[in-house]
Amino acid sequence: MTNPASSGTGGAVRFGALLLAMPLLLWLFLLVILPHVDLLLVSLRERISYGKYEFSLINYTEFFVEPLYWNTYIRTAVMSIMATALTLLIGFPVSYYIAKVMRGKGKNVLFLLCLIPFWVSELVRTFGWMILLRESGVISNFLQWAGIADGPVEMLYNDATIMVGLVYTSMLFMVVPLVSVLDSLDDSLIEAGYDLGGNAFTVTRDIVIPHAMPGIASGCIVVFMLTLGNYLTPNLLGGKDSLWFTEQIYTQFITRFNWESGSAFGFLLLVLSSMIVWIGLKLSRQTLSETVS
């Protein structure tokens, strides 16, 4: 719009462009910026008595003073990074297989298979896992029937189960960008890699991964964000020891009516995720604009 060429046609063009941008601007302002500003204001006040509030940083200091919140925060970040790494580790070969090995119909079928779990809601998927893994569940019964286990086996309510659930939930969001970026890799580059003496490992390391880097980065960002912000999966599969930071936020808002500290936690989560994504981009030498496009 600042293009001098368009200034000749004057205000009409500019108004038209503004009108076109209106839905986006409204969306951004009403549903993104405004709530965040409100959240920030709420997080910066302290309840004095009934209906009386004062400006204070207590909600933030509370977070740093109380090790419980810290631990949850760190734990959530570490588990999310692990889940992202695992998703990448599993998703990459899957995507490679779909994009480069499969041809024609099989490719679409396989891709669709990856998609199918997402036709039902996350809640249903998680309950599906619970039915499989619970003490009186399918796998436990099978193990007993097969004589591998003597008694019922409880596979729910531990960190490994949370990890399984998170990876499962995130897989599609890793596979889609990876498949599209690997699809764009010319087969002859891979063949040239082999032709010039490379083996599977070096071709993957020197040619496939550098090419796929933008897809890897965008997949990881999406998966990391989803995981960090996930509430259902850690809560339902994790049981009594689940401890997820979003759970803390939910609890503060809904069961404690403590919007002030909930808002502060929300902001801290925002800072945490932005920081980790930023570090990740720096480490992989990607830029956000490259990754998003």
Partner: peptide, 11 residues
């Protein structure tokens, strides 16, 4: 082999 589209590694 010299490939049809050369297949030079852009990275």
């Amino acid at each position: 082999m010299v490939f049809q589209h050369l297949a030079l590694f852009p990275m």
